[in-house]
Every structure is written in C-alpha cells, then in structure tokens.
C-alpha cells in the first residue's frame, strides 16, 4: 500500500510539473501557490500537499466511475 501511495504521489508531482509555469492555485485559507510551491508541498507531504493528492485522487475516481461526464451535454 505504501508503494501505491508513493507511486500516486509521483504521479501527482508529474501532473503538476506539466502545468504551465505561470499557474497559480488558491486553495482555501492556504493562500495562493505557484507551481514551484505546489511541487514543494506535494514533495513534503504536508497538509497542502495531501490536499493536492486528494484532489487528483477524486479526479481519477471520477474518471473511473464515469462521473467526470455527469451533467455534460
């Protein structure tokens, strides 16, 4: 299980790396993060990093169960 989590963390890291350098993400009260800061949080595995992993997990789950396309015309 630890390996699965570690692999997923690497996947999230790679997906953020693929974002354009100028991307800013504002997450709740955590402030606005640059791409570099997002990568640092994921790497550190802190609360913000865990949130980013949680967002990506929800996305892949939605891709798997088809809910990504819910409500789409």
């Amino acid at each position: 299980m630890a390996n699965v989590n570690s692999d997923f963390k690497r996947l999230v890291y790679a997906r953020i790396q693929a974002m354009p350098d100028g991307t800013n993400i504002s997450i709740g009260n955590s402030g606005t993060l640059s791409k570099t800061e997002m990568l640092e949080h994921v790497e550190a595995g802190d609360e913000i990093g865990q949130k980013m992993i949680e967002v990506e997990k929800a996305f892949f789950q939605a891709l798997k169960d088809g809910s990504l396309y819910d409500y789409a015309d």
């Binding site: 991307t23 800013n24 993400i25 504002s26 997450i27 709740g28 640059s34 949130k51 967002v55």
Partner: peptide, 10 residues
Amino acid sequence: EDFILVSQPR
C-alpha cells in the same frame, strides 16, 4: 470542502 481557484498571475 475548500473552494479552489486557478488563475493566471499576469
């Protein structure tokens, strides 16, 4: 949950 916003610094 947290509301997330992506924006462009420029």
